[in-house]
C-alpha cells in the first residue's frame, strides 16, 4: 500500500529525513515511533504530497508521489498533529466540506458524512460549533474528516497527543476499528500505543530507520538478556545475591527494591528452576519468581540513544518514566 525508497528531505544543511525505505502491505497498522524531531512529521508530509522529497521516491495506494499526487490525495486521509479545524463550523459542516473538497461524488456525500460522523461517535454533537467542543471531540472531528472519503490509506500524526487517558483509550479503539477497512500509518512517541495497536513498528531517530519489525520480534531480537525477578524472605539481600550469582548461566545479580533481586541471564537460559532449587536447599522463603521480558520502551531507548543503555543498568520503570 505504501512503498518508500530512499526518501530524503533536507532543509538547508539539516537532513530531516535520511534515505528512508520501507514497505507497507494493505491492511497493516504501522507505527512510526521516535522522539520529537526524529522526522516523523516530515516523512508523513512527503507521503501526503504536502511537499516533495529532496531525493528518493515513494508510492502511496499504488500511485507515484511525483506524477499522481492528486490521485494519492484522493485516496488518503490525513490527520496532522495539531488537528486543524475551522472553529466557526460545526462538525457536520466541516466533515461535509472535507468530503466535498476531497471529491466525494455529490450523491454519496451526505451518506459518507453521516457514516464518518457515526463511526467517530460525533452524531450527538454534530451541530455544535467546533470551538465549543472538548479536545477529545475535536480529535474525533479530525479523524472523521480523514476517513470521510473512505481512504485506502490513513496517515495519522500523533493521534492521541494531548488527550486524557480515557480519551486515549477511546481514540485507540476507534483507530483499531478503522484499521479493519484501511491501511494505517500512525506516528507516536507513546510506546504502549504501538504495542496496543500496531502490527509493525518503525523506530526512527534523527531521520533514519533504527529498527523495523513486529513489536514481539523487536523485543526478542534486541533483548540480549533475560531478566528474572526474585523476591525472597528469611535471608539478607547481599547474601542471597552472592549465592544466586553462582548459578550456572547467571551473568549478574543486583538489588531491585528491598527483598527484591533481579537476575540476568542470556536469552536462551532460563535460570528459574535452578533458583527455585537453591532457595529450597538453603531454606529461604520464595515469594516471587518471575521472568520479565524487555519492554518496547527499553528497546526504544536502546535503539534511539547513542549511548548503549543496557537493560542490566537501568530499571524498566525508570526508563519508561524518562521516555
Amino acid at each position: 500500500m505504501i512503498t518508500a525508497s530512499n526518501l530524503t528531505k533536507r532543509f538547508n544543511e539539516k537532513t530531516a529525513v535520511d534515505s528512508l525505505s520501507f514497505e507497507m502491505a494493505a491492511g497493516e497498522v504501522l507505527g512510526f515511533l521516535g522522539p520529537n524531531g526524529a522526522g516523523k512529521t516530515t516523512t508523513m508530509r512527503m507521503l501526503t504530497c504536502y511537499f516533495p522529497p529532496t531525493s528518493g521516491t515513494a508510492t502511496v495506494a499504488g500511485y507515484d508521489i511525483y506524477n499522481d499526487s492528486k490521485k494519492i490525495r484522493q485516496n488518503i486521509g490525513y490527520l496532522p498533529e495539531l488537528v486543524p479545524l475551522h472553529p466557526e463550523m460545526t462538525p457536520r459542516e466541516f466533515v461535509g466540506f472535507a468530503a466535498h473538497a476531497k471529491g466525494v461524488a455529490h450523491g454519496d456525500r451526505k451518506r459518507f458524512v453521516e457514516e464518518a460522523l457515526g463511526r467517530c461517535n460525533l452524531l450527538q454533537v454534530a451541530d455544535q460549533l467546533i470551538s465549543q467542543l472538548s479536545r477529545g471531540y475535536r480529535q474525533r472531528v479530525g479523524l472523521a474528516q480523514a476517513i470521510v472519503n473512505k481512504p485506502k490509506v490513513l496517515i495519522l500524526d500523533e493521534p492521541t497527543v494531548g488527550l486524557d487517558p480515557a480519551q486515549i483509550l477511546d481514540i485507540r479503539n476507534l483507530i483499531r476499528d478503522i484499521a479493519q477497512h484501511s491501511t494505517v500509518l500512525l506516528s507516536t512517541h507513546i510506546l504502549p500505543e504501538v504495542e496496543a495497536i500496531c502490527s509493525r513498528v518503525i523506530i526512527i531517530s534523527a531521520g533514519r530507520i533504527r529498527a523495523l519489525d513486529t513489536p514481539e520480534n523487536l523485543t526478542r531480537s534486541l533483548s540480549s538478556n533475560q531478566r528474572t525477578l526474585v523476591e525472597l524472605a528469611g535471608v539478607e539481600d547481599e547474601v542471597a545475591a552472592e549465592a544466586l550469582a553462582t548459578i550456572e548461566g547467571v551473568t549478574s545479580v543486583g538489588p531491585s527494591s528491598p527483598h527484591h533481586l533481579w537476575v540476568d541471564s542470556p536469552r536462551d537460559v532460563d535460570p528459574r528452576p535452578e533458583i527455585a532449587r537453591m532457595v529450597v536447599e538453603k531454606g529461604w522463603k520464595l515469594l516471587t519468581l518471575q521472568s520479565q521480558s524487555m519492554k518496547l520502551e527499553d528497546i526504544f531507548l536502546k535503539v534511539v540513544t547513542s549511548e548503549n543503555v543496557t537493560p542490566t543498568l537501568t530499571e524498566p520503570q525508570e526508563v519508561g518514566g524518562a521516555a
Partner: peptide, 13 residues
C-alpha cells in the same frame, strides 16, 4: 490554525 496544511493534502491545487 493549520487548516492550510490539511487543504494541501486534499486533491486541490
Amino acid at each position: 490554525i493549520g487548516t492550510l496544511e490539511l487543504l494541501f493534502t486534499y486533491p486541490v491545487n
